[in-house]
Amino acid sequence: MEWSNYILLGFIGGGIFFACAAWALHWAVKDGQFNNLDAASTTIFDDEEPEGIMTDAFPDMKRKQKEPPRQ
């Protein structure tokens, strides 16, 4: 194939790719995904693992932190 044909194919492929991305962005706006960004940022928390709770730590370091400060 000639260079020009590759460029043409590239533009067609790229166009389809870009159209898919544009459609995804359009869908996200229409679906209200960007209406309340604060709510979206807290979707990782829920009743089972609520906000404000640390969910991973070395056991010995946690114990150290709990010890009362020396007088």
Binding site: F34, A40, S41, E49, P50, E51, M54, T55
Partner: peptide, 25 residues
């Protein structure tokens, strides 16, 4: 996922994260 999940605090700016994703794409 893990930084806010382990700390128990929401991500600093969700708005920026959206910009980050679409500009990478």
């Amino acid at each position: 996922y893990f930084i806010p999940k382990v700390l128990g605090v929401p991500i600093h700016s969700y708005y920026l994260s959206v910009i980050g994703f679409w500009s990478l794409a």
